[in-house]
């Protein structure tokens, strides 16, 4: 079975979260998923461009989707919550509003493209459940993550707003748990499971966001988690790269390794932490993983 997706990496995968690019590609290859990276994709706007120009925000994402449509695939796959939200928002707006779609297409026409609405925007997490199937995933597991206690940190934009995302109930999603358990890991219950990482306001609300980061790390730590797993590179960056800054606001030790979803999957598929670039995190995740797992 080969699943083929158009692939939208998003900006962080080219720099700060290059390890997510590396691990996503490794995992896709191991699972037999073909990812065709869009040629000439742009930044999705990261939930900022609409503050300046809503129409522009829709237009650039219409272009991204149109690029995927021209590949003749049925789905455009992302590995970032916010990219998923931005792309799906643009799509929903145009699909619901014929006039807007026409207007956007006037602009796209000048760029030699056309938005039709034939491609669905999905996230790797959803694709695993919807297209690949948990049973098939289980079959690929060579190193069950037995004994590893993971804290699934969803991030806001993979569930909200529900009328745009709609994959599962935003008040109690289960997809991360389903995948983690299929890999053999144990999921811990913790208060901040559906919390906001604060990344999108880390500049204007630095103080507040650092407090949130501390709470977001402490909560799973107190629940006994070995690491946080997240389907979003922005959550990962916020919780990991800013953790030393957040630590300054807390007396207790908040140390909590943060890994990307594909890295967790990769471990279970027998891929080594180095190959998954787990060594690239600011808070070293490898010791915690090694304690519990027979790593490749």
């Amino acid at each position: 079975m080969t699943l083929t997706y158009a692939f939208f990496p998003g900006c962080t995968l080219e720099s700060a979260a290059e390890e997510l690019m590396i691990s996503t590609k490794k995992v896709a290859e191991a699972l037999g998923i073909e990812l065709i990276e869009l040629n000439g994709w742009t930044c999705c706007g990261a939930s900022h461009i609409q503050d300046i120009d809503n129409f522009l925000s829709t237009s650039i994402n219409a272009r991204n989707i149109a690029l995927a449509e021209s590949l003749g695939v049925s789905k455009l796959l992302t590995v970032c919550n916010t990219c998923t939200l931005m792309l799906r928002t643009a799509k929903l707006k145009m699909d619901k509003n014929e006039r807007l779609k026409e207007q956007v297409n006037v602009g796209l026409d000048r760029a030699g493209l056309q938005y039709k609405g034939t491609v669905e925007v999905t996230h790797l997490l959803w694709a695993l459940l919807e297209d690949y199937g948990l049973e098939n995933l289980k079959k690929k597991v060579t190193v069950p993550l037995k004994g590893l206690k993971v804290a699934n940190f969803y991030g806001c934009h993979i569930v909200m707003p529900p009328d745009v995302m709609g994959f599962e109930n935003h008040r109690n999603p289960q997809s991360m748990e389903m995948v983690a358990e299929a890999l053999g890991a144990e999921c811990v219950e913790f208060d901040q499971r559906l919390a906001c990482c604060g990344f999108h306001a880390v500049f204007p609300a630095q103080k507040e966001v650092m407090t949130m980061t501390g709470i977001n790390c402490l909560s799973p730590k107190e629940a006994g988690a070995d690491c946080i797993v997240t389907p979003c590179p922005l959550c990962q960056m916020q919780l990991d790269a800013y953790q030393p800054d957040a630590q300054k606001r807390f007396d207790q030790d908040i140390t909590m390794p943060i890994i990307h979803l594909p890295q967790l999957i990769g471990l279970a598929l027998g891929i080594s932490p180095e190959e998954l670039a787990i060594n690239r995190h600011v808070v070293d995740a490898i010791p915690a993983l090694q304690r519990k797992l027979q790593l490749a």
């Binding site: 909200m160 707003p161 935003h170 906001c196 999108h200 306001a201």
Partner: peptide, 13 residues
């Protein structure tokens, strides 16, 4: 603090 909205989408959801 208008710019401190976190874009978390809780309110609208």
């Amino acid at each position: 603090d208008l710019w401190k909205c976190l874009h978390c989408m809780q309110c609208v959801s």
